[in-house]
Structures are given as C-alpha cells and as structure tokens.
Nucleic acid binder design. Structure first.
Lengths: 224, 224
DNA sequence: TTCTTTCCTGAACAGGTGTTCAGTTCTTCC
DNA sequence: GGAAGAACTGAACACCTGTTCAGGAAAGAA
C-alpha cells in the first residue's frame, strides 16, 4: 500500500510553505529580524509552531531562505534597471540607484536581511546574498571600465564599498527618516548615487547627468 | 562609625573596573561580541561573575562602556592624524586612512563595536560612537568644502556613506583577509581611501597624491 | 580584638525561545 | 468503510546566559 501525494495535497503543501515564508517576511518587514520568531510566524501563517518544522529544519533555515528570496528579488530588479540603461555608465547608475530605492522603501526588511542581529547563524546566506549584489555591481563597474568611462580599479572592492556606503547612509542607525517626504527621498537617492558614481571615478559633471537620468525612472518604484 | 574607603581600596576598585573592561575588550578582540559573556569576562579579570555586577549594572552597560572606550581611542587617533596634516584635503585623507588602518588592524573588535549582533541592546552607544566619528569626518569634509577644494554637499550624509564604505569593504563579510600581507594591506587602505576621496569630489589626480601622502605616515600604526 | 560596613563569591534562579513529540486529524488506498 | 500512512497540533521540554543573593571574606572604626 503505497501512499502517494495527490496533486491537491502537493499544492497545499507548497502553499503552506509559501505562507510560512511570507509570514516571516511580513514579520521582518514590520519588526525587523528580531520579530521573526517561530511562534508569531506560525500564527500569521495559520499554522502551529510544530508545523513550521515540517517545512524548515530549523529557524536558521527559514531565515536563510527568507534572505535568499529577498535577495533574489532585489538582484532581479537591479538587473532589470541596469539592462534597460543605454550605456555602461548609465547601467551602473541605474543599478546603484535601484539598490538605493529598494533599501529605502523597505528599510526594516533591508536592515534585517543584511545586518541586524539574529540569534541563529545566518552568516552563510547573508554572505551569499551580498556576494550576488556585489557581483552584479562589480560587473557593471567592470563594463564601464572596459568602455573607458572609468579608471581601472579593483572592482570587487569598489562594489563592496559602494554597497556599504548605500546601506550605512540609507538604513544605518544614523540615517534620517526620509520616507515621509518623497522629495527628500529623491534627493537622498540622488545624493548617494552621486557619491557612489564619483567614488568609482565618474567625473563630477558627467555623474550629475547620469544620476538624474537613473533616478527619475526609478522614482516610481518607491511606492511598491 | 563612618566607613571610609581608604586610598588603597579606591585604587583597587578602580583597577578591578579597568580589569573587567580590559577583559571584555580582549574577549571582543578575540572572538567578537558574542564572546563577551559575563562568565568568561569574569574569569579573565580574575573575579567572580557576581562581582562584575558591582561595577556594571548590567551587561548592556559593560558593553556600552567598552564601545565608548574603543570609540574614544579611535576618535583621538583620527583627530591626531588629521590635525597633523598640512591642509584641509590632506586632513580629510589622513582621517579616512586612519579609520581604515584602525579598522583593519582590529577587525573583530571593530566589527563587534559597530555592527555585530549582541543579545543586549547597545544601540544607543553604538549610535553615539558612530555619530562621533561621522561628525569628525563631516567636519573635515566641511573644511575642505569651505577651502574650495570640494563641491558643496550634504557633508553629514557623505561622511556616513564614507564610514559605511570603509567598514563594509574592510571588515564586512566579503572583506578578504589582508592582515597577513602588509603590502596588500597598504594597497587596500590606499584603494578605499582613494574611493572615499573621489566620492566627496576630490579630482582623481589630486586624490592619488593625497592618498599617498596620508597613507604613508599612518602605515606604521598597523602593528599597534 | 571586636564590631560594623563593604566587598566578593559562585551556585542557584529566571526568562525567553527554539525544538520536540505523543496524541489527533486528515488523506490515501483497498 | 476502514486500515495505514502522512500531516498537524500545541503543550512540554531544553538550553543558554544574564542576573540575583545568602553566606563568607576583607577592610575600616573603636
């Protein structure tokens, strides 16, 4: 007598898994990583605490997958924005400002994903998450260098520094609240994007143009 | 019958307090903030666990004071380096590279002080710590702007971004180990300092000169 | 020396949260 | 419909550390 999972059951299981992940994401978005606790997540997903463990071996795995998921989304958005740009420098500008906008529009989530204290060890997936974004930015810098728009440099290091600058300036503890006022938000995104572009060697005048070009279309994402 | 603390006792109490703080610092330097636990710290300081609570109301207070202490040291070093520089731009370069060197030479401690997960809430003192360094850097940027060496900008934001860039690039999870090789270390410090200077608008050629000028004298600090 | 006050010790306590598991409910198959 | 397997429940468990506190040691006054 072989028990076989019916299509309906498979679907339900998948739905539950998603529900749990979504619940975790909501918790993180609202209260940061510290709010991602098994019991609350289970309640939100309409499941008992024990059930969570039928889908994720441990809390660390749950959070790791959450990080991976959010990271995937962000990477996709960055790629989309950069690919739509007319040239390598524009692509870089678009990538940077996209990260900035994303980070700003979901500050608690962003902070939780990348740096907030968590009681379990999620270092590995955090590193992977960063590596992806940094890799993407680095390759955009590389492209601009190859196109002769930027001086030769350690692109990996530069990309890492750029990410750090964005994060610290936008969601770090010293970041002032800018979400309330859309104009201020745009200014902030422009300012950090400008800093980033200049850092890798874009000439000031040219950088200003690129920033405006990149930030304007991305502005609409803020509400998303 | 008034009990009065003899000079000798006062001295011993002060010594114990310092010993506890020093023990905490050692723990942090060796194993990061997670290694700063009451029991191990007490052992290292040759004290019983309960005694720690005669000197610090709680673990949070202990760590806060540790953060403040380390932060004070770093701020002093930055000021010293910057004040010794010949002009505002050099001062900025010196400040940035000093931070870089400090961070690199005590990576675990630096990471612990500024971002590592801690089970107790030390947000306040972390914010204070950052605010001090950011303020110092910001005022150096400001001076360079006033001197006409840099374009006008939001110096607070710029300083925050600079710090973030340094930290992420040098002690973040993606930072590659550079301590082993002094030459590589110097190169890295130069690279991030260059990035930082360009970010705030120093022209590329001029920046290179400033970097070399700033990094060379600071190099000797690495071993400290 | 003797009494009082302060200081120190370290084992026991406390609290919060991830994890387990025996019992229950649901699903599949004959 | 009923037996067997899978999924779910939620209360109990386990563990880890910060914190406490009664008892003992040391230091100051008399």
């Amino acid at each position: 007598m072989v028990y076989r999972r019916t299509h309906q059951v498979v679907k339900r299981l998948a739905a539950r898994r998603s529900a749990i992940l979504a619940a975790a994401r909501e918790c993180a978005a609202e209260g940061g990583m510290s709010a991602v606790q098994i019991a609350p997540v289970a309640v939100r997903a309409n499941v008992a605490a024990g059930t969570v463990y039928r889908y994720f071996p441990s809390k660390a795995d749950l959070i790791s997958e959450l990080i991976a998921e959010v990271s995937r989304d962000e990477l996709a958005a960055v790629r989309r924005a950069a690919d739509a740009a007319p040239g390598p420098s524009s692509a870089l500008a678009a990538a940077v400002s996209t990260v900035a906008v994303h980070v700003l529009s979901q500050r608690k989530l962003a902070w939780g994903i990348l740096a907030e204290p968590v009681d379990v060890d999620v270092t590995a997936s955090r590193i992977a998450s960063r590596r992806e974004i940094v890799g993407e930015i680095a390759s955009r810098i590389d492209a601009a260098v190859r196109a002769g728009h930027l001086p030769a440099q350690d692109t990996q290091l530069a990309a890492t520094a750029l990410l750090g600058a964005l994060h610290e300036a936008l969601v770090g503890p010293l970041a002032t609240d800018t979400l309330d006022d859309p104009a201020k938000l745009r200014d902030t995104v422009q300012a950090v994007t400008l800093l980033a572009l200049r850092a890798v060697g874009v000439m000031d005048a040219r950088a200003r143009g690129l920033v405006v070009q990149a930030v304007l279309p991305v502005k609409s994402l803020v509400g998303a």
